[in-house]
Computed example of a mutant assay.
Amino acid sequence: MSTTYLMTSTLNGFVAGPNHELDWLYDLPPGDRDFTTFLDGVGAVAMGASTYEAILRDADLLQHPERWHQAHGDRPVWVFTHRSDLPKVPGANLRFATDVAAEHPAMVQAAGAKDVFVAGGGGLAAAFAEAGVLDRIVIGITPVLLAGGKALFPADARLRLTEVERKGQVVFVSYQVL
């Protein structure tokens, strides 16, 4: 079991455009961004408020909560935010939280023998690293360049390369966090 930050990135290190746009990602062939195998090994998910809002918007989840359940089932998801105005997807196993270090033990317990998946964004992944609970980073590098946007990982980290895999037009690079 590990706590893993998996994120798809542009070649120049952005995970979203300047206004959290993900259209560049949706332009990739669906098979190149299929994370089904990875998600089968995930027992709990963490995401930041911007990521949560982007998927709410892009998948129209408040009108179609079944789309959330297709992706997550009953898997618990923690949304890390300091805001109290975020809507909850109806029927989702969802928790709003502020403190990574305080919540991580509950996430590990909820995950059981599976992984904790830090889904985004980069600031949240950095908070997991700073709390000393991030074990692995997996980056799906796409053949896309953006002029600006949200950084993949806005902090210092020392890593050890553990694996490289190609899936269509995306190269997945896995690192152990040292």
Rank of each mutant, 00 (worst) to 15 (best):
L124A: 07
R166Y: 10
V79F: 04
R95G: 00
L124Y: 12
G112L: 03
Q63F: 06
E53W: 13
Q109G: 08
G149M: 12
V177D: 01
S9D: 02
D60T: 13
S50Q: 13
R166E: 12
N93M: 03
D60Q: 14
A92L: 08
D85I: 05
Y26C: 00
V164T: 12
T37N: 14
F35S: 01
L25A: 11
F117Y: 14
P90H: 03
H64Q: 12
T142W: 06
P29A: 15
T36M: 04
S50L: 07
D60M: 11
G121V: 08
D60G: 14
T37E: 15
R75Q: 04
D27G: 07
G17K: 05
A101E: 10
D74L: 11
L134I: 02
E163C: 08
V116L: 07
D99G: 06
L159E: 01
T8N: 14
K114A: 12
V173E: 10
P105Q: 03
A97Q: 08
H69T: 13
L178S: 10
Y175V: 09
A92D: 07
A113K: 14
A54S: 15
T4Y: 02
G123C: 05
T8I: 15
Y175F: 15
E165V: 07
T37W: 14
A71F: 15
P154D: 05
L62Y: 01
R95N: 09
D115Q: 08
T98E: 13
A147G: 14
P18H: 02
G121S: 08
A97I: 10
L61I: 05
A131H: 00
A147R: 08
L61T: 02
F172N: 04
T162P: 03
E130G: 13
R160F: 00
V177Y: 00
A155N: 08
Q63A: 15
T81Q: 03
K88H: 08
V118E: 01
T51Q: 13
L159W: 00
E21C: 10
F172D: 06
A126G: 02
G41C: 01
P154A: 08
P29W: 09
F117C: 09
L152F: 06
R33E: 10
G140Y: 01
W78P: 04
F38M: 04
V108C: 13
H64W: 03
L146V: 00
M1F: 11
T142V: 12
T162D: 06
V116N: 04
T3V: 15
G43S: 00
L11Q: 05
V15S: 04
G120E: 05
L11C: 03
A59I: 00
P30N: 03
G121N: 09
A110K: 07
F117A: 09
T36F: 01
A49T: 08
D74I: 15
H104C: 02
A127V: 01
T8P: 06
V118W: 02
H72V: 02
A44I: 07
M7G: 00
H104R: 00
S2P: 13
D32C: 06
F153W: 13
L134S: 03
A126D: 07
H82R: 13
H104Q: 04
V118K: 04
G168R: 03
V170H: 09
L134H: 02
V79E: 00
R75S: 08
H82S: 11
L94S: 04
R33Y: 10
Y52T: 05
